[in-house]
């Protein structure tokens, strides 16, 4: 069914998406916590900034990433100088683009679940002897687990589908930055590429379905209180 080249595209897409989600999850959690639990001047601005990738055209986000993380961008030069990491035209750059685009969705999902956790439970844990971090790790974190799972799956699905920011920031290089949507786009440009388009598109649909089913199953398993 699938050619070796197809498998390579799927593997690269999964690698990019998984790295993107792993990168975004702690950042999204921290932002969600700040937005859900703290009040400070400028919170609305932070909220708006977090949501920017959701409303700005992806090509603009890609261009902003080029400005910041390109080889002449300040963050790009810093990463190159400190860690020898280049993002431009690399799969790592594709992961960053996917991460940035997935961030708002992930923050929203986690924030909803954090807002549903009663902060008075954390206060109860404190009176029982737990320090602030311990109370957070033993009460708030496990209670917001369904939200973390939902956020990861949403982020994964969003990352697998990421196109505009990726092609703008890291271009469409087979074997390096050519993820599923980019490969489908390339195949569409080729005469006689219809069969490959159909194959890759089916994989795309199946991956998304699998992610949704997995998330539902995980959410059910982490659900508590249903059984005595």
């Amino acid at each position: 069914m699938l050619s070796t080249a197809d498998w390579a595209i799927v593997a690269l897409s999964l690698k990019v998406a998984l790295v993107a989600v792993a990168l975004t999850l702690p950042v999204a959690f921290a932002l969600a916590w700040v937005l859900a639990r703290t009040r400070f001047p400028g919170r609305i601005v932070l909220d708006a900034l977090v949501h920017l990738p959701l409303v700005v055209p992806p090509v603009v986000m890609g261009w902003l990433l080029l400005l910041g993380f390109g080889s002449n961008g300040p963050a790009g030069r810093l990463l190159e100088g400190l860690f020898g990491v280049t993002l431009m035209f690399r799969w790592t750059g594709a992961a960053l683009a996917a991460a940035v685009m997935a961030l708002p969705l992930m923050v929203r999902a986690i924030r909803l679940s954090l807002e549903a956790v009663d902060p008075r439970l954390e206060a109860a844990a404190r009176t029982l002897g737990a320090g602030p971090w311990r109370a957070f790790a033993t009460v708030t974190l496990p209670l917001s687990l369904p939200g973390l799972i939902a956020a990861s799956v949403l982020g994964l699905a969003r990352s697998l589908g990421e196109f505009g920011a990726t092609i703008t920031f890291v271009s469409n290089i087979p074997g390096e930055t050519q993820t599923l949507p980019l490969a489908i786009y390339s195949a569409l440009q080729l005469p006689g590429g219809d069969v490959q388009v159909a194959r890759l598109a089916s994989i795309s649909v199946m991956l998304s379905l699998a992610a949704l089913v997995a998330s539902e199953a995980l959410a059910r398993r982490s659900g508590f209180g249903h059984v005595a």
């Binding site: 009663d118 008075r120 439970l121 009176t127 496990p142």
Partner: peptide, 12 residues
């Protein structure tokens, strides 16, 4: 030790 009016048992 505190026994809260709303108890606050950990549901999970």
């Amino acid at each position: 030790g505190v026994v809260f009016q709303d108890l606050r048992l950990f549901p999970h």
